[in-house]
C-alpha cells in the first residue's frame, strides 16, 4: 500500500488532466454544430457533449476504457465472429490482434536476444570483432525503423517469406541492440582478480565463459532483456503497418484511416498493457534468478 499510494496519486492526477484537456480539444466541433443549428451552447452541455463524441479529437478516458472492454470481452463473447459463437478469435477483437502482435514479438525477441548474445560473445572473445562490430551495431540503430521496415518486408516477400517472420525480423532488429550492449558489459564484468584466479587454475577460455563470465553477466542480461522485449513489441507494430495482416499495428493504422480515434487509443492502450506485462514478466524472472544466484542487489 505504501508503494502503490504514490503511483495511484500520479495516475489520478494524469486522468484528471486528461479529462480537463478533453473539453477544449473537442469544443470546436460542438461550437460548429451549435452555430450550424443556429443556437447557443451552454457550458454544462458543452462539457457533457465533449465527453461523448463519436469521433473526438481526444477521447475521454472512459470512452477508451469502454472501447477496450467492447473490443475484447464483449466482442469475443457476443460478437457474431467472436470466440464464443464461432470458436475462433474475432478479427474485430483486440485479443486477436494482440495475439498476432505477441507471437511476432516473442519470435523476434528470441531471435534478437540470441543474436545479441552471440554477437556479444564474439566481441568479448575476438579482437577483430571487438574493433569492428560495435560501430555497425550502433549505425544500425540510427536508421529509422519506419523507413527500413517496408524494405525488409518487400525483400523477404520477393524470396517467398511473408507473414510472421518478416515482422519478427524487424522486432529482432530493434531488440538485439540492447542485448549486445548489456552482454558485452556483463561478460566483461569479472574483475582482474577473478580472471587471475582462473589463470592460476589454468582454466581454458570456454570454462572461464561458462563458469565465470556468463553467470556474472546475468544482471546485465536481464536489464537488457527488459529494454529488448519492449523494443521488439515496437518493431512488430511498425512491421505490421505496411502488411495489414492483423496485429495491433493494423488496428492503429485502420483507426487513423477512418478517423476512429477511440479505436486508435484503445489499440495504443492494448499495446501499452502488453508491453508492461512483458516487461513485468521479464522482471519477475529476473528477481527470481538473481535472488537465487545471490546477485540481487
Amino acid at each position: 500500500m505504501t508503494r502503490s499510494l504514490p503511483v495511484l496519486t500520479v495516475v489520478a492526477v494524469l486522468i484528471a488532466l486528461w479529462y480537463l484537456a478533453v473539453i477544449p480539444m473537442n469544443a470546436k466541433w460542438e461550437y460548429d454544430q451549435a452555430s450550424r443549428a443556429g443556437r447557443e451552447i451552454g457550458l454544462s452541455e458543452l462539457v457533457a457533449n465533449t465527453m461523448a463524441q463519436e469521433r473526438p479529437v481526444l477521447p475521454a478516458p472512459h470512452q477508451v476504457v469502454v472501447e477496450l472492454w467492447d473490443s475484447t470481452v464483449v466482442e469475443e463473447l457476443t460478437g457474431r465472429r467472436g470466440w464464443w459463437r464461432s470458436g475462433s478469435l474475432s478479427n474485430r477483437s483486440l485479443i486477436y490482434h494482440g495475439w498476432v502482435t505477441l507471437t511476432a514479438t516473442m519470435l523476434g525477441f528470441v531471435i534478437g536476444t540470441g543474436g545479441g548474445i552471440l554477437l556479444a560473445v564474439g566481441i568479448v572473445h575476438n579482437r577483430a570483432m571487438d574493433a569492428s562490430v560495435m560501430p555497425w551495431a550502433i549505425a544500425s540503430q540510427t536508421i529509422p525503423i519506419i523507413a527500413l521496415a517496408p524494405m525488409i518486408i518487400v525483400v523477404l516477400n520477393s524470396i517467398g517469406i511473408s507473414g510472421l517472420v518478416p515482422k519478427a525480423i524487424i522486432a529482432a532488429y530493434l531488440s538485439f541492440f540492447p542485448v549486445v550492449v548489456g552482454m558485452v558489459k556483463g561478460l566483461r564484468a569479472p574483475d582482474a582478480m577473478q580472471m587471475d584466479q582462473m589463470k592460476t587454475w589454468s582454466a581454458p577460455g570456454a570454462t572461464v565463459f561458462w563458469k565465470l563470465r556468463l553467470p556474472m553477466s546475468m544482471p546485465y542480461l536481464f536489464a537488457s532483456l527488459k529494454v529488448g522485449i519492449a523494443a521488439a513489441l515496437v518493431g512488430t507494430i511498425v512491421g505490421e503497418l505496411p502488411v495489414q495482416e492483423g496485429g495491433l499495428g493494423v488496428r492503429l493504422l485502420s483507426g487513423s484511416y477512418y478517423g476512429q480515434t477511440v479505436q486508435i487509443w484503445a489499440a495504443l492502450f492494448a499495446a501499452a498493457i502488453l508491453a508492461a506485462s512483458l516487461v513485468g514478466i521479464v522482471g519477475m524472472i529476473e528477481r527470481r534468478v538473481l535472488r537465487r544466484m545471490g546477485l540481487a542487489g
Binding site: M193, Q194, T200, W201, P215, G294, L295
Partner: peptide
C-alpha cells in the same frame, strides 16, 4: 598445478 593461490579478497562466487 604446482601451487594454490589465495588472493586478498576471498573471491567466492555468490551463486
Amino acid at each position: 598445478r604446482a601451487y594454490g593461490y589465495v588472493f586478498q579478497a576471498a573471491g567466492l562466487y555468490p551463486w
